[in-house]
Amino acid sequence: MTSTERSDTDRQGLSYYPWWLDNLADDATLEGAAMNGTARGAEAVRTIVAKARELYEFQDFSYADVFGDNGFLEIYDSSIQGEPLKVVVTVTRNAAGQAQDLAVLHRPRNSLLLFSRLMHEKCAGTPLAAHFLSDDSKA
């Protein structure tokens, strides 16, 4: 689908749901520029992705499709608290076709840091919070 064929709802990403979120390998991993370390396990990955999607004010996709033999790529613009955000997500599938390894790049840096701090707040009280910057963290 080209950007000119998208409805306003699709353009905002409100109707988009990543297929891979419900098809994660049990030992899936998630790494990101906004994260410390690697999140491991389908439930941890699913929880982080769901909480991250809650922060996005919109998702304007320029690409969401297969690449290579076992990859999937998403590229979109967004914003968080009015701050612009560019996002690239790579998903590598295992032999069973499940999402195995995910990597997420957020930019620019100021928006990435805001995203990380907000994710720390959303994950507060859980082990997942350690993957993100707290308000008193130095970047």
Rank of each mutant, 00 (worst) to 15 (best):
Ala34Asn: 12
Met35Trp: 08
Met35Tyr: 11
Met35Leu: 14
Asn36Gln: 15
Gly37Ile: 13
Gly37Arg: 15
Gly37Gln: 13
Gly37Trp: 11
Gly37Phe: 07
Thr38Cys: 12
Thr38His: 03
Ala39Arg: 08
Ala39Ile: 13
Ala39Met: 10
Arg40Pro: 03
Arg40Phe: 05
Ala42Thr: 08
Ala42Gly: 03
Glu43Asp: 15
Glu43Phe: 06
Ala44Gly: 00
Ala44Ile: 09
Ala44Asp: 15
Ala44Tyr: 05
Ala44Thr: 02
Ala44Glu: 14
Arg46Cys: 08
Arg46Asn: 10
Arg46Ser: 14
Arg46Phe: 11
Thr47Asp: 12
Thr47Gln: 13
Thr47Gly: 04
Ile48Tyr: 09
Val49Lys: 03
Ala50Thr: 13
Lys51Tyr: 04
Lys51Leu: 15
Lys51Ala: 10
Ala52Ile: 00
Ala52Asp: 11
Arg53Thr: 05
Arg53Leu: 14
Arg53Tyr: 09
Glu54Val: 03
Glu54Ala: 03
Glu54Asn: 06
Leu55Gly: 02
Leu55Asp: 04
Leu55Pro: 01
Tyr56Gln: 04
Tyr56Ile: 01
Tyr56Phe: 12
Tyr56Glu: 07
Glu57Gly: 00
Gln59Pro: 02
Gln59Ile: 02
Gln59Lys: 14
Asp60Tyr: 09
Phe61Arg: 08
Phe61Gln: 04
Phe61Met: 05
Ser62Lys: 12
Ser62Ala: 09
Tyr63Asn: 04
Ala64Val: 01
Ala64Glu: 02
Ala64Met: 01
Ala64His: 07
Asp65Cys: 04
Val66Arg: 15
Phe67Gly: 02
Phe67Lys: 11
Phe67Arg: 14
Phe67Ala: 13
Phe67Thr: 11
Gly68Gln: 10
Gly68Ala: 05
Gly68Tyr: 10
Asp69Trp: 06
Asp69Ser: 10
Asp69Lys: 13
Asn70Glu: 12
Asn70Trp: 01
Asn70Leu: 09
Phe72Val: 00
Phe72Met: 11
Leu73Arg: 14
Leu73Asp: 05
Leu73His: 12
Leu73Ile: 13
Glu74Ile: 06
Glu74Phe: 02
Ile75Asp: 03
Ile75Thr: 09
Ile75Ser: 01
Ser78Gly: 03
Ser78Tyr: 03
Ser79Ile: 01
Ser79Pro: 11
Ser79Trp: 05
Gln81Glu: 14
Gln81Lys: 11
Gln81Leu: 06
Gln81Met: 06
Gly82Pro: 10
Gly82Glu: 06
Gly82Arg: 08
Gly82Ser: 00
Gly82Lys: 10
Glu83Asp: 00
Glu83Asn: 07
Pro84Met: 02
Pro84Tyr: 04
Pro84Leu: 02
Lys86Asp: 04
Lys86Met: 03
Val87Glu: 07
Val87Cys: 08
Val87Asp: 02
Val87Asn: 04
Val87Ile: 15
Val88Asn: 01
Val88Cys: 07
Val89Ser: 02
Val89Arg: 04
Val89Cys: 01
Thr90Phe: 07
Thr90Ile: 05
Thr90Arg: 12
Thr90Tyr: 06
Thr90Met: 08
Thr90Asn: 12
Thr92Ala: 02
Thr92Tyr: 01
Thr92Ile: 09
Thr92Asn: 07
Thr92Gly: 02
Arg93Val: 04
Arg93Ile: 00
Asn94Tyr: 05
Asn94Arg: 07
Asn94Val: 11
Ala95Asp: 14
Ala95Gln: 13
Ala96Lys: 14
Ala96Gln: 12
Ala96Thr: 08
Ala96Glu: 15
